[in-house]
Computed example of a mutant assay.
Amino acid sequence: MRAAVDDVATPDPLGRRLPGIYADDDLAQRLTGAYDQVLAPVHATLDSLWAYFDPALAPPDFVDWLGSWVAAGASPDRPVDERRRVVAAAVTRHRVRGTAAGIAEEVRLTVGVLPEVVESGGTTWSATPGSPLPGSAEPTLTVRVRVPEPTPELAARVRAVVEANRPAHVSYTVEVSQSSADDADGPR
C-alpha cells in the first residue's frame, strides 16, 4: 500500500554499526547508505504505525483499507474527512446493524438522504393473555427514499445497502421517489 518515499533520513544508519575498521571505508559507507535509503521508509512507517490505525491520522488510502476491516462502507467518492468519520463510527453503527435505525443511517451515509424505514413487526405488552400481536407474521421491510432526482443507479445503491444490512430472513422493498417541497423536513 505504501510506496517509496523520497528523502527520508534513517534514525539509525547502518554505517555506524559496522566494525571500526569500516568506519572510514568509503565503499562500505556508501553501500550501507544505499541500504539505509531503502530501509528508512520502513523505519518511519514502523515508528508511526499507531497513527495508521487511527482514522483521523491515517493516510487517505489507508483510511479506505481500515474501512474494509470494519465493514464501514465508506464510499470512495466521498470527501476524505467524511470517510474518516464513517470509519471511526463503524463500531457504533454495528451495534444497531439490522435495525430500522441502523439501516436508515447506512442509507443516509451512502446517498446523503435519511430514508423512511417501515417494518412489519412490533412489540406490545398486555395484561390480558391471548391479546393480538402487532405487525404481521411475515417479516418485511420497506425503505422509502425521496430525492430531487431519482435515478436507477441511486435505487441500485440503496438496494445494495439494504441488502448488506438487513437481517437475512427479512424480505425488503426499496422505493425511490421524487421529493416535493413538503419533504424538505425529512421523513416522518
Rank of each mutant, 00 (worst) to 15 (best):
T99P: 05
E149Q: 13
S171P: 08
V143A: 00
R30M: 07
R78K: 13
P152H: 09
A56P: 04
S75V: 13
A71P: 01
Y22M: 09
V170N: 07
A156K: 06
S68L: 15
P59D: 09
V158I: 02
R83E: 12
D6E: 11
G73H: 03
D54Y: 10
S171W: 13
Y22G: 03
A104Q: 00
V117A: 12
R83T: 08
G135F: 05
V86A: 15
A181N: 09
D36L: 06
S68K: 08
A160G: 15
V86P: 04
T110W: 01
T140W: 08
T32M: 04
S120I: 03
Q37K: 14
V70R: 02
V70N: 04
G98N: 06
E116C: 06
E138K: 09
T10S: 14
E82N: 05
A88K: 06
R93P: 08
S177T: 14
A51S: 15
V38G: 02
D182P: 04
Y35N: 08
S179D: 12
P129E: 03
V147H: 00
R30F: 00
A184E: 10
L154A: 01
V111K: 02
D26H: 15
D47F: 12
D26W: 15
R83K: 13
R166I: 08
P13G: 01
T45Y: 11
R95E: 12
P129Y: 08
D185N: 15
V147W: 00
V87D: 06
P134R: 00
R166K: 11
H169G: 10
P148S: 04
V63Q: 04
V143Y: 01
S75K: 12
V143N: 00
V111Q: 01
L49G: 05
T45Q: 10
R2L: 09
R85P: 05
D26Y: 15
W69E: 03
P79K: 10
D47V: 04
W50N: 13
V176F: 02
P11F: 10
A51W: 05
V107I: 05
A155M: 01
P41H: 03
V8Y: 00
L27A: 14
E175N: 11
T128L: 15
V5D: 11
A101T: 14
S177F: 06
L46A: 11
V38S: 06
S120D: 12
R83S: 05
D6T: 10
L109E: 14
A88V: 05
D7A: 15
T151F: 04
A88Y: 01
V107H: 00
T140Q: 09
P59N: 07
L133V: 15
A51C: 07
T142R: 14
S126H: 04
P79R: 08
R16Y: 12
E106D: 15
T32P: 02
G33D: 02
T142V: 14
Q29I: 06
